[in-house]
Each structure stands twice: as C-alpha cells, then as structure tokens.
Design a protein around this nucleic acid. Structure first.
Length: 303
DNA sequence: GCGTCCAGGTCTACC
DNA sequence: GGTAGACCTGGACGC
C-alpha cells in the first residue's frame, strides 16, 4: 500500500494515545501495528501493518476463509482512514513556510519533514467518539480500562484471538446500567448509551462527518449537540476528522504548553488561542505538534 | 489503612 | 455570559 512522502508509521501510530487503547496493538520494537476490523459484510478480519520500503506499507490480513477483492479493497480503505493517508498536509507545510519567523515554526517544519502530522484514527467516527468520551475527566489508566471493558464485553471474536470494537448497534442494545456497572463508566454511562443509540439510528450520521464539506464551526455545533461532548471532546473529535481549527485544550496540553514556553503560571485559554491564531485552520495541528514534539524523539516521555 | 486530590471535562442551576 | 458545584472512577500521595 502506497503512502505519501514523507511518512513514518511510528510517528503516525504514536501521534496520540489511541494506539494504547484496544483493539489497537502496537509492537514498538518490531514496528507492527495490528487490530481487528469489521467489514461492511459483517465479517471480522485481523490486520497487521508494517513499513515496506521508503513509501509503502505491507498489510497482512488474517480471516476465516478467503477474502473477496471487494473485502481486500475495504481493508485497505479502512487502513487509509486510520493512518490519515489521504489528509493533505501540503497547505500546513506552506503555512509553516509563511510563518517561518515564528519561534515554533522550525520545530513544526522538522516534525513535518520527519513524517509527523497525521493522527491515528479509528476505522469509524463512532469508535473515535466513544473513545473521546472515555478520555474526559479521568486518568489515562481509567480511559484504558473503560475501553478495554467495552471491547471485552461487547466486541466480537476476530481471527487470531482478538476482539473487534463494538458496533453502535451492539452498544445501543445495552441499558445505561450496563455501562455504569460493567464498563465502570460512572456518570459517562448515559452519554455512551445515548451516543450509541443515536449513531445506530443514523441521527446524526456520524460516519458522514469524515467526508462532509460542512463548515467546521457548524460541524462543531453538531458534535456539541451530543450529550457529554463539551468543548474539549468536540474539538478533539474534530481533530480526528482532519479539522484543526480549534485547539482541543485539556488539562494536560495546557500544562505542557506552559512548561514548554517557560511560563510559571498557566496562561488563559484565550491567550493560548492567541498564540496559535496565526496558524488559522491549522492552529490545532500546530499546537499539537508543539506539545508532542518530544514524542517524536527516540525515547518519548509519554505515556 | 484511610482520606484527599485530581486526571486528556461536562452539565445544570443560578446570578 | 460567567461561575459554582455535582458527578464516577481509580491511582497517587500524605499521614
């Protein structure tokens, strides 16, 4: 499978925390990314992705029985989505040239040259939305355990022993009590159930958001209309849709920005927005690449 | 062992 | 529109 240049699988995988959440698996030593995928036929397959040559990826698919050509094409399409291979970063690169005088521009240019800038996504917007809800107001350990329990409880067996991420329909069939008692999602339980029910009913059609030409502020309002999606969650989901207009500030990024820029006191959100305003529709990506610059090093400081 | 704090926030009521 | 307080969980920390 061809990839745009420059591309670095490791940097895309570790672009944010998703690779650490089931059903993703990342073998950092062997640089192998793996997970089960659910095809539109309902069949589950397991895929493994590694780098091949300078501009390619080797994809290995495990399934029960042979895959049709259409299924093989669907696997590739889902992986293109997950690795954001179709995201055009050229306008962002041009913006870094225009803003070369800014202190952060050099580091961003380097990051782009190394192949950073693409964020790992889930195969579906629904999975991204569920995981985003599971990151709100809790430690990463709790996010991991909530997502892990969702996969264990509701995922379907996949070839190779893993389990798929649950479908919206499978989650929608469970009562709120299930998410509270079995998933241990606490007050997020009604949010998860409502999200699943709305996604399963197609109102709204979450998957359409990926290709939508709807202006970002309008899309942001639609996401905010989902219960449990405040400013952070909505802007984080927008980021995974390839919309970088907003910063998706959370306690971690606020703290890290203050540290990176040598501020003793944490700047207000308005100040942080002002810092990145020159980047326009790429403000969120500029901010994210700045706060994760040390992740691009050989030994990242996170998680 | 126990209490408190807080983490990749959001919602509601109230002013 | 801005703010205070409630909300689940679970790990870290101080005592």
């Amino acid at each position: 499978m061809r990839v745009p240049a420059p591309f670095d699988l490791d940097l895309v995988v570790r672009s944010h925390g998703w690779y650490d959440l089931p059903p993703w698996q990342w073998d950092r030593d062997r640089k192998v990314l793996a997970r089960p995928l659910t095809l539109s036929t309902g069949r589950a397959v397991s895929v493994q992705v590694t780098t091949r040559g300078r501009d390619g990826l080797a994809v290995r698919v495990s399934s029960q029985g042979r895959n049709s050509a259409a299924e093989a094409a669907e696997v590739r399409a889902q992986l293109r989505t997950c690795l954001a291979l179709d995201e055009d970063l050229e306008p962002f690169r041009r913006r870094t040239e225009e803003l070369a005088h800014r202190p952060e521009a050099g580091a961003l240019k380097e990051a782009l040259a190394r192949g950073a800038g693409r964020l790992l996504r889930s195969p579906t917007v629904f999975e991204d939305a569920v995981k985003t809800l599971c990151t709100t107001n809790c430690s990463w350990a709790l996010t991991r355990s909530m997502v892990g329990r969702l996969v264990e409880e509701l995922g379907r067996p996949a070839p190779g022993g893993g389990r798929t991420f649950p479908s919206a329909a499978d989650m929608a069939a469970r009562p709120e009590r299930f998410f509270r008692d079995r998933i241990r999602a606490g007050y997020r339980a009604p949010f998860l159930r409502d999200l699943a029910r709305r996604a399963a009913s197609g109102q709204p059609d979450l998957e359409e958001w990926r290709e939508s030409s709807t202006p970002t502020p309008v899309l942001a309002e639609r996401i905010r209309s989902l219960s449990g999606f405040g400013p952070y969650a909505a802007e984080h989901l927008l980021r995974l849709l390839g919309r970088h207009d907003f910063l998706a500030l959370d306690s971690w990024s606020r703290k890290k920005l203050a540290r990176i820029r040598g501020r003793k006191r944490q700047p207000s959100d308005r100040t942080l927005e002002r810092w990145f305003a020159p980047w326009g529709e790429w403000a969120g990506l500029a901010m994210w690449l700045e706060v994760t610059a040390d992740w691009h090093e050989d030994e990242p400081s996170w998680p």
